[in-house]
């Protein structure tokens, strides 16, 4: 039933990561959408807010943290559940992401169990 299927925007400059994440998200019954950077992701969010966003940190043009801060200022920008998905493991970075409005945080590398667990904690699966 595509009418009730939740959408998840995967924002990552790595095509391979986007592909892997999208496949896992399909298994979790999401409709995955993809964007290669924060700027493109913002354009897509302004058209239609996804239910969830899986967000890389280090990307060209607009990084994940800048995107998140901008997103949360948008009308309805507080509605998507945002899960950071990044190689950054420093506690300071994690804290910074949470303070900027991230709901959860995945440290790369990840597997399907981790994504399912994180989306479950965020109440999405």
């Amino acid at each position: 039933m595509s009418a009730v299927q939740k959408t998840c925007l995967v924002v990552d400059d790595s095509k391979m990561i986007r592909r892997v994440a999208s496949r896992i998200l399909r298994d979790l019954k999401f409709e995955p959408l993809e964007a290669p950077d924060g700027s493109k992701a913002m354009e897509m969010c302004k058209v239609s807010m996804p239910d969830a966003i899986l967000l890389d940190w280090n990307m060209p043009i607009m990084d994940g943290l800048s995107f998140l801060k901008a997103l949360r200022k948008e009308p309805n920008g507080d509605t998507p559940i945002v899960v950071f998905c990044t190689a950054e493991r420093d506690v300071m970075k994690i804290t910074e992401a949470l303070e900027a409005g991230a709901n959860e945080y995945v440290m790369k590398p990840f597997d399907s169990d981790i994504l399912e667990s994180k989306f479950s904690e965020a109440g999405l699966v």
Binding site: R89, D90, V91, I94, T95, L98, E104, Y105, V106, M107, P109, F110, D111, D113, I114, S117, K118, E121
Partner: peptide
């Protein structure tokens, strides 16, 4: 491990109760 702390443990608990 990196994988164990990401299964079932909310990120805020990881930050509050663990050290890398």
């Amino acid at each position: 491990t990196h994988f164990e702390v990401q299964r079932g443990l909310p990120i805020r608990h990881l930050v509050d109760y663990f050290t890398r």
